[in-house]
Amino acid sequence: MDYFHSKQKFNPEKGDVLISEPYLPDPNFERTVVLICEHDENGTFGYVLNKPSNALVEEVVEQISDFKEKLFIGGPVQQDTLHFIHRDPESMPTGKPVGGGIYWGGDYDQLLSMIDLKQINPSNYRFILGYSGWAAGQLEEELEAKSWIVCKGISASRVFDVDESLLWKDILESLGGKFKMFANYPADPNMN
C-alpha cells in the first residue's frame, strides 16, 4: 500500500483512504479511516469506516426487522441519512465502483428486499449513518496542515474483514516506518 504525506503534492482519488494523524484535534475524526468515494473540483465525499454507533440497522430503519447488524457513523454530515458500501456487485449491480472491490450504494428497495428475504451476506455490507464531506480545496488545506495521511487504495478484504477497532492501527502498521510508530502512540499522550 502506498502512502502520501503532506510534503508530497498529491491529489487524493476515489478509492484512496485518509488516515487521521494520531492527535487530530477533531473528535469526529479521532483515529479514523475515511474511504474516499468522490473527489473532484467540487470537493470530497467519503465515509468513516471504523466508527461504530450504538445502534443496529433494524433499530433505525422502520422497514427492516430481524437484522442485527451494526450501524457505523460515516461522518458529521447528515447523520439522519443511511448509506451503504459493499463488496457484492453480483447481487447489487447498481452500486458505484469505488476501487479495490468496494462499491458504494445501489438500489435501496432491492437492498430492503434482500434483507427481508435473508438473501444478503452481512459480512459483505457496511451500513452507515451520515458521511464526511469537504468543500473544494478544504481537504487539500487539511493535508497541508498534516491532519491526514493519504493511502493509495484499500482492498475490500481490509475494509470488511479487519475488525473496525483495529483498522486504523492495521493500516498504519502496514505502511511501515514512522507510520508504524504512529500506530502505537497512546490515545491520550498523558498516559505515556
Rank of each mutant, 00 (worst) to 15 (best):
F4S: 06
F4G: 06
H5W: 10
Q8E: 05
Q8G: 05
F10H: 04
N11P: 00
E13D: 04
D16M: 01
D16E: 00
V17T: 14
L18P: 08
Y23W: 14
L24V: 12
P25R: 03
D26Y: 05
P27D: 02
N28Q: 05
R31N: 13
R31V: 10
V33P: 14
L35S: 01
I36K: 08
D40M: 00
F45Q: 01
V48A: 01
V48N: 01
L49W: 01
L49H: 03
L49V: 00
S53W: 00
N54C: 08
L56D: 14
V57D: 14
E58V: 09
E59H: 15
V61C: 15
Q63I: 15
S65G: 14
S65H: 15
F67G: 03
F67L: 08
K70Q: 14
K70H: 13
F72P: 04
I73K: 11
I73H: 09
Q79M: 10
Q79C: 06
Q79F: 00
L82W: 13
H83Q: 06
F84Q: 00
I85V: 09
D88E: 10
D88M: 12
S91A: 04
S91K: 07
S91F: 03
M92H: 06
T94W: 10
T94F: 08
G95H: 13
K96G: 06
K96Y: 04
K96R: 04
P97A: 13
G100Y: 07
G100M: 13
G100E: 07
G101H: 12
G101V: 07
G101K: 11
Y108F: 05
D109N: 09
L111I: 11
L112S: 10
S113L: 09
M114K: 12
I115V: 06
I115M: 02
L117S: 06
L117P: 04
K118S: 11
K118R: 15
K118E: 12
K118I: 13
Q119C: 11
P122K: 11
S123K: 06
N124Y: 06
Y125W: 08
R126H: 03
F127H: 10
F127E: 06
Y131Q: 13
G133C: 07
W134Q: 11
W134M: 06
G137T: 01
Q138S: 02
Q138F: 02
E140A: 00
E142R: 02
A145I: 00
W148N: 03
I154N: 11
I154W: 03
A156E: 02
S157Q: 15
R158E: 07
F160S: 12
D161R: 14
E164F: 15
W168L: 01
K169N: 13
D170M: 02
D170K: 01
I171V: 09
I171F: 00
L172F: 10
E173H: 09
S174T: 11
L175F: 12
G176N: 05
G176W: 12
K180C: 14
M181D: 05
A183S: 14
A183G: 15
A183C: 13
N184K: 15
N184G: 02
P186E: 05
A187W: 06
A187P: 12
D188Q: 14
N190L: 05
N190W: 04
M191V: 09
N192F: 09
